[in-house]
């Protein structure tokens, strides 16, 4: 087990190097810092000096990979590759193109993101599993049929409409909660409740339908027949046997996204004006702040790999058959 974790962590290194290389190529080779400067400065006929000073100001006035002018180890370290890419490995994200400390921003904006993402996940999970169980209990009846139609319809609606519709109904028509904004501390709840409700609702279609499929798959297995042959009632078969087995894919599916919750939700955060990492990313994209996008790519990759490792570990806890070696 320990050996397994160590091996997986070691395997993460080449992957992160790969991610780094891809972002490096995307950001500095395909488009040179000169291009970026021209883009940022806006005008096509910017002077060379303006470009140089922009690069100087944002730390791009260095060679890409090798600096022949520096001395000793500096030949490698005083380069864009080292300063902008390698440093990410020690979670030194540097400063954004507008000069803010990215690491500090991330640490601050993480919490509002979690404040939405965690309730959405938990409430959604509880609701979807209960609903799926209900459907499966009444399988092959009209409840089942109508629910499936409803679920497919729900998953055919774009997430944007849930947000727009929710905002319109709850905030504009009924004035129940503020449309958008955020507050610190406990005051935040009234800003959070609408995004959470909408997040849960928009996940019902796909989530419940998937769980229903999982349950139905389990219900056709041989051990369920054995359980029935023992004389167990249908509800005990469902809760005692089927649920236990179906929870394995459900839980591991949840674990893989757990770390990514930190990244926040791009759309709902920007719609509701929540100062989380999702809206941070969107703002960076819109203001074309490459330093932040780069940092978020790296952070996302790290969290994804953590999620994969956690998934494997969670299998050992919920499934007695799995042994990691």
């Amino acid at each position: 087990m320990t050996a397994y974790i160590i091996r997986r962590l070691l395997y993460a290194i080449p992957i992160l190097i790969g991610v780094n290389l891809i972002t490096f190529v995307l950001f500095f080779v395909v488009n040179s810092p000169d291009d970026m400067a021209r883009m940022q400065l806006g005008d096509k006929r910017v002077t060379e000096t303006a470009i140089e000073s922009w690069k100087q100001a944002h730390g791009y006035a260095k060679p890409l990979l090798y600096n022949p002018e520096a001395a000793g180890i500096g030949r490698l370290t005083e380069t864009i590759f080292f300063e902008k890419s390698i440093r990410l490995f020690i979670f030194d994200f540097g400063s954004s193109d507008t000069g803010r400390d990215i690491g500090h921003d991330i640490a601050q904006r993480m919490w509002p993101s979690l404040a939405i993402a965690v309730p959405v996940l938990l409430v959604g999970l509880a609701f979807n599993i209960s609903y799926a169980l209900l459907i499966v209990f009444f399988r092959a009846t009209y409840i089942d049929f109508a629910s499936v139609v409803l679920l497919v319809a729900m998953m055919s609606v774009s997430g944007l409409f849930y947000i727009i519709g929710g905002q319109f109904l709850l905030s504009k028509l009924f004035h129940l909660v503020p449309i958008s904004g955020y507050d610190t501390g406990l005051q935040a709840w009234k800003f959070l409740i609408l995004p959470v409700i909408i997040g849960v609702i928009s996940g019902i279609g796909a989530g419940t339908r998937w769980y229903r499929t999982l349950f139905l798959e389990e219900i056709s297995r041989d051990y369920v027949r054995t359980a029935r042959a023992k004389g167990l009632s249908e509800s005990r078969v469902l809760f005692g046997h089927v649920l236990k087995n179906a929870l394995i894919p459900i839980l591991t599916g949840v674990v893989v996204v757990l770390p990514l919750l930190f990244m926040g939700s791009l759309i709902s955060e920007s719609f509701f004006g929540i100062p989380g990492l999702g809206s941070y990313t969107i703002d960076a994209i819109n203001s074309q702040d490459f330093a932040i996008v780069r940092a978020m790519v790296f952070l996302g990759a790290v969290l994804y790999i953590v999620g994969l490792i956690l998934t494997d570990l969670s299998y050992t806890f919920v499934d007695p058959r799995v042994r990691l070696a």
Binding site: F27, N31, G300, Y304
Partner: peptide
């Protein structure tokens, strides 16, 4: 490796770069 890059960000990065190139 490709999977570990958040999809939206990869798209964002690529589209941003395309914009830079096009402009």
């Amino acid at each position: 490796t490709l999977n570990s890059i958040p999809g939206v960000l990869l798209i964002a990065a690529a589209i941003l770069l395309l914009e830079v190139y096009m402009s």
